[in-house]
Design a protein around this nucleic acid. Sequence first.
DNA 1: ATGGTAGGAATCCTA
Length: 256
Amino acid sequence: MKINIVTWNVNSIRARLEILKSYIMEKSPTIIAIQETKVADSEFPEEVFKSANYRGVYSGQKSYNGVAIVSKFPIEGFEKNIFEEDSEKRTILIKSTGLTILNCYFPHGDVRGEEKFFYKLEFYQRIRNYILKNGLINERFILLGDFNVAPEEKDVWDPLLLSGTIGFMKEEQDAFKGLLNIGLTDLFRMFHPDERAFTWWDYRAGAFRKNEGMRIDHILISPSLKEKAQACYIDTEPRKLKGASDHAPLWGEFSF
DNA sequence: ATGGTAGGAATCCTA
């Protein structure tokens, strides 16, 4: 059985509804993890997914953040907002078709040394601890979403220019490495060890046209999924459209 | 060229 999983920061699900609808009709991925829905759960456009035969869970808030996962297979269990005390809706976990999938919208971080920056680093530690505490490394586990970190020099268009800027700082990269160090694998790098490829391009200054981007959306997999993985790629087509999200969808393919 | 654009909200905040 083949399973395709997509992660996509849509930057407002309501603003992106038509693009998203056409995309899922055309491509029909098995599971979609969405970030930055920017809607309260009561406003979530679930009929779009229902009519395309997806079941979904979502955890959102007005204006900011918000995550969702939809699946063509039954959702056997889920957990919204895994850090109950956190008022920002950034995490959702499901169990579906034998997989445990944790969809995260990691904090942006703003600038180094400020409150939001420390919140970002702390968030990484909490995710790491959650995975360890719940033994997810030993399951068929996928951590995916918008990590807001480009792990290495080859993950940004201009390492020199971006040196010391948000998403490309040593503290953030160390936090990301902390997730690899507990046994997770960067699926894109498993298939493309050297390629300079991006998942996000600033809306400003014609960044996409010039391919001035960063690879900040990721799919990380547990050891038992490595032999099941078939492919990983970024689909830049939807980023070209009028009214696009600033992020492109990232695909992972598995065969069981 | 240290600006630029986009979304949602409300006349600014976040990214």
